[in-house]
Design a protein around this nucleic acid. Structure first.
Lengths: 241, 241
DNA sequence: CGTCGGGTTGAAGATTGTCAATCGTAGTGG
DNA sequence: CCACTACGATTGACAATCTTCAACCCGACG
């Protein structure tokens, strides 16, 4: 599961996640001009479906997703699983764990992923030294908090159709931030079971709703891609006000 | 709705919320021994049911609940309302808003409440000056994040009975932290409509489930009090693993 | 060629919502 | 003291939503 790869670091330098956000601030702060020490990081890859970080692991590391998709989730003993958040390149696996006690969720790779492991103490040092790095942590925490509250609202107040619409639209928007998207076609590696676990439905019901969306010419999911044909209707369904 | 009250400050000094958490750290840091300037704060009271802070209000303040109960919520245009979190004395209304852009929720008083208003810039200054104050902000953020993820899991994976059990048990535990609780009787100012809005059910269904709990001798809610008669069963229902 | 994972579909049932009536309690004004 | 009202809780009947179980399909892959 863990693998050392010297080439990976070089490849990751050009990853999209370095163009913005936490890592950009972090590595800017540690650039040549800076008096700060260069940041030490390890890279590793995880295959699709494999666990990345589980609740029991108590290492003081900060993991950042470099490429691929992953998700945070909570596994219930009765077999149920709640997906809490999908992670895209640039996302910190557990931003709250940088400064406070970690939260009790696990993470899994959705596709094959590359992950950067930073030392917790070094990151905290950088946060204290550079206001911008700290602000990126707060931005990440804020985004996660906002997303959590939206998800709570959707789960509590919306029927299946609108839950799915909301999930798909939020993912689309996040994907569109750094990837060029053509003809309303988005990369979409989720299985219907992932959708189901993310919004508290069964995969059977997800299948039915997606069939409806297809019939109504709103969107189609096939071959790992999501194609939106009626964005206005999708937005209407996903709206939270 | 807003009211200046010179006596309130004196009264609030002995409030339970000062015995622990954010405010304790904040005022310790600003004590006589400290070189830091004394913190400026205003107090105001809000009657039960009144709004405290709405989405449009863009003031850079930090509000802390001094006494009474309140809640964060999102109001939907179709009449639905999702309660995101109940607030008890000592809770910050929007900890994420101290350092990042605020989140779009509103807050309402559940009982009559006393609120302390601190200046955002002063609070940030204290955070930078005193590690302990900063840690309290992170603790607050962490607690809120953990609670959000628990709520998401409960909403997504649990039926009505277990959702209600989870909500009641979490509230009990928070109430029990600083209040002395006798004979498993807890102050409980929520109406059934609040329970319903917090866990995504109708008040009608909440009524049915509470009737069931009464029949099964698990707990009883009456006259603003919650009395638990079978804690083991309640914990079993509320368990999240 | 068999198998396996993921998706689709149908039928039946469980859970929860909607609508509406009723009840008790607290307040309010005459 | 008594109507009158308002609010919250309760209950019944019925409907909508979603789950469960099962069968089947289909493409990938050994």
């Amino acid at each position: 599961m863990l693998r050392s790869d010297p080439d990976l670091a070089a490849r990751c330098v050009s990853c999209t996640h370095l163009n913005s956000g936490f890592c950009a601030a972090l590595f800017n702060a540690c650039g040549e001009q800076s008096a700060l020490p260069r940041l030490h990081q390890q890279f590793f890859t995880v295959r699709a479906g494999q666990q990345i970080k589980c609740q029991s692991e108590a290492r003081d590391d900060v993991l950042v997703l470099c490429s691929g998709w992953a998700f945070r989730y909570i596994q219930l003993s009765d077999g149920g699983r709640q997906i809490l958040r999908f992670l895209l390149p640039g996302d910190i696996f557990s931003p709250a764990a940088i400064f406070a006690k970690g939260m009790s969720f696990s993470a899994k790779a959705l596709t094959q992923v590359q992950v950067s492991r930073l030392d917790g103490e070094e990151v905290r040092k950088q946060c204290r030294a550079d206001e911008l790095v700290m602000m990126e942590v707060f931005r990440s925490l804020g985004d996660n908090g906002r997303a959590s509250y939206e998800l709570i609202t959707v789960l509590g107040q919306r029927p299946a159709e609108r839950r799915i619409a909301h999930l798909l639209l939020s993912l689309m928007r996040r994907v569109a931030v750094d990837g060029v998207v053509q003809h309303h076609r988005y990369p979409f590696p989720l299985k219907q079971q992932h959708i189901a676990d993310a919004i508290g439905l069964t995969s059977v019901h997800v299948s039915r709703v997606l069939a409806l969306f297809r019939d109504r010419k709103i969107l189609t999911i096939s071959e790992g891609r999501l194609e939106v044909t009626d964005l206005a209707e999708l937005e209407r369904l996903a709206a939270l006000n």
